[in-house]
Design a protein around this nucleic acid. Structure first.
Length: 578
RNA sequence: UGGGGUGUCGCCAAGUGGUAAGGCACAAGGUUUUGAUCCUUGCAUUCGUUGGUUCGAGUCCAGCCACCCCAGCCA
């Protein structure tokens, strides 16, 4: 992001092991000077901030090196996938601001080719049709410390396997009855090499291919070939696939390289065809957050949250609805970096990224969340004073807005105190405070409700203080306010972290529910917003001065709702959260 | 008792044999009609640990310790 200093002496070396690897590969001409990456989600759920890390990595790596990045749906398991997720994922990636190269890809569109390659492996005696049941296969696989046992079908004649494989495809067998396996090494210390399953029978309809197939290739078999077909150079994935790399390479190296080339996007080009290589990096984990799909799904399905796009969810849809900007998420991913060590990123880094963006780009407006009535006793009853306030304290080019001041206004309940703590610089009985962008007022009288709580303040305005310091005294406090007559009533939703513990690592769905913060959502219905904020063209993102950053929720009809994206930093009264 | 990985400031993270970048957080000052922003300053004699090689080691070697991943016809 900041390597824009092209006139600085000595171009900056890219940092991070993946960027360095690419630079090295480019220098050595390994892939004919190409960088081609891909983001390969399975459409079985919504994307979350962890996926954003991978998206940013793949797309920016290509971008920085004049390469391309494909979007490929890794859709080899029809049981878990759906078109709904395909659409949502495409939408999320576009929202983040990335554009994939060419058409969207699907592993499923390579099914014919994959089938042919499987036949090739069988013919070469590198794969066989096995009749072990899933349970038997597990027993035969052996353990972490002990070798496996070879399948009795392992040395089946290739022609017989070919015939059986064709009949599997034709639908002659039931789910689980037969499978296609690679013939590698049942004694390998790497369990992924103990004759892994390449194809399984699944009489299920697929969101892309319908009922065309009843056998489906596995991830391990599909991924490497799909990468080769798309002439991917750098295949980036997370650490848990490290043990799969030898299998990734085995499959590619046991296929005829010319047949791979002929199936690839490079088939009609002069570019050298080089096999893709897999590189792993650590997944993103964030404190007070949980990314497991299974657990997120449970939250949605059990109604613990409002849906996949609930603003408390770490999904991109949720973060978007919460008010996160694409830039903030991209900056965050850049700040976190990409390494091979498992780490737990402080959620404060995410909060910093969104505040940084919003502080710079968001117009200011006033909104009173919990109103307390104030009567300006020396302000004429039907007078409306139209004040001009800057939309942004540092960016004049953002212009100004008109804010009406009237005799009756609202201020924040917590900006008045009967019993002020040390250092309190807001309003107290007999004390003075500045109304933001307007006058200094003095609280002359406190009217109370039946319970003795302040219900209405009667204050007098010092008319000599508009844009000027009061003479003869210092008034430190500045509070926000809204005209009672002109203000708009809106609903505000305040969000807090969804999980209580810093590192939620549930084992079961029940444990997830135990981790939920009961106060993660507070809805306030009687908030009073500065008029003009709801006008056409005013935008959806604002800083409510002294309160936080808010995003207008357009999902629901009915009353106007603002979601709090993030509070302002608050160095006053660290413990006393609003 | 198998295999594959990782250990640098409270949290991320650069660093690839020449004497510990940066960001977040935190602390202290300054500016301020947002207790915000902004600015300044401070914040690892030390890189899991013990030895070794070297003029010199976070970087090389060996041992030890800790943590993560792998036994789906999931991805």
């Amino acid at each position: 992001m900041k390597d824009t200093d092209d006139n600085s002496p000595g171009a900056r070396e890219p940092s991070g092991f993946i960027r360095q690897m690419v630079v090295r590969d480019l220098a050595s001409g390994k892939h004919g000077g190409r960088v081609h990456t891909r983001f390969p989600p399975e459409p079985n759920g919504f994307l979350h901030i962890g996926h954003a890390k991978s998206i940013c990595l793949n797309f920016t790596l290509a971008e920085e090196n004049g390469g391309h990045c494909n979007l490929r749906f890794d859709d080899t398991n029809p049981l878990k996938e759906s078109q709904e997720f395909v659409n949502a994922i495409k939408d999320n990636i576009r929202w983040l601001g990335f554009r994939w190269h060419g058409e969207v890809r699907y592993s499923s569109s390579y099914f014919d080719q994959l089938y042919e390659f499987a036949r090739q492996l069988i013919s070469k005696g590198k794969a066989y049709v096995c009749a072990l049941s899933p349970e038997q296969a597990r027993e035969y696989r052996g353990t972490l410390t002990g070798p496996g046992t070879e399948s009795p079908w392992r040395d089946r004649d290739p022609n017989e396997s070919l015939d059986l494989f064709e009949r599997m495809r034709a639908g002659e067998f039931k789910d689980g009855e037969l499978s296609l396996r690679a013939k590698i090494d049942m004694a390998s210390p790497n369990i992924n090499l103990r004759d892994p399953i390449l194809y399984r029978i699944r009489h299920a309809s697929h969101h892309q291919t319908g009922s065309q197939w009843c056998i489906y290739p596995t991830y391990d078999y599909t991924h490497c070939i799909s990468d080769a077909i798309e002439s991917i150079t750098h295949s980036l994935c997370t650490l848990e696939f490290e043990d799969h790399r030898p299998l990734y390479d085995w499959i590619l190296h046991n296929l005829d390289i010319d047949s791979l080339r002929a199936a690839s996007d490079l088939r009609d080009s002069d570019a050298p065809f080089v096999l893709p290589e897999q590189t792993e990096f650590a997944k993103l984990r964030i404190s007070y957050t949980m990314m497991g799909k299974r657990f997120l799904r449970a939250l949605v399905e059990q109604g613990k949250v409002d849906g996949w796009d609930d603003p408390r969810m770490p999904t991109l849809a949720g973060m978007r609805r919460r008010g996160y900007t694409p830039a903030s998420i991209r900056n965050f991913c850049e700040a976190v970096g990409v390494a091979r060590g498992e780490s737990l990123v402080d959620i404060g880094m995410l909060e910093h990224a969104i505040r940084e963006d919003l502080d710079r780009n968001t117009p200011r407006v006033m909104c009173v969340l919990r109103p307390l009535t104030v009567i300006l006793t020396n302000f004429d009853d039907n007078r409306v004073e139209r004040l001009r306030l800057a939309r942004h304290p540092k960016r004049e080019e953002l212009g100004s807005r008109e804010v009406p001041l009237t005799r009756e206004i609202y201020i924040e309940q917590e900006d008045f105190s009967d019993d002020p703590p040390a250092g309190f610089k807001r309003l107290v009985a007999g004390g003075e405070v500045r109304l933001r962008g307007a006058y200094v007022i003095r609280c002359d009288e406190v009217q109370r409700d039946a319970a003795g709580r302040p219900a209405k303040l009667r204050c007098s305005v010092d008319f000599a203080t508009l844009g000027k310091r009061p003479v003869g005294r210092k008034v430190k406090g500045v509070i926000h306010w809204v005209s009672a007559a002109a203000g708009k009533k809106v609903t505000v939703r305040l969000y807090d972290r969804l999980f209580l513990s810093e590192n939620p690592t549930p084992k079961s769905v029940e444990e997830v529910f135990d981790e939920i913060n009961p106060d993660s959502l507070a809805q306030l219905d009687g908030c009073i917003l500065e008029p003009g904020t709801l006008n056409e063209g005013a935008g959806d993102r604002f800083q409510f001065e002294r309160v936080g950053y808010f995003y207008r929720d357009r999902e629901a009809a009915g009353p106007v709702v603002f979601n709090r994206t993030i509070s302002l930093r608050d160095s006053w009264g660290a413990g006393s959260a609003r």
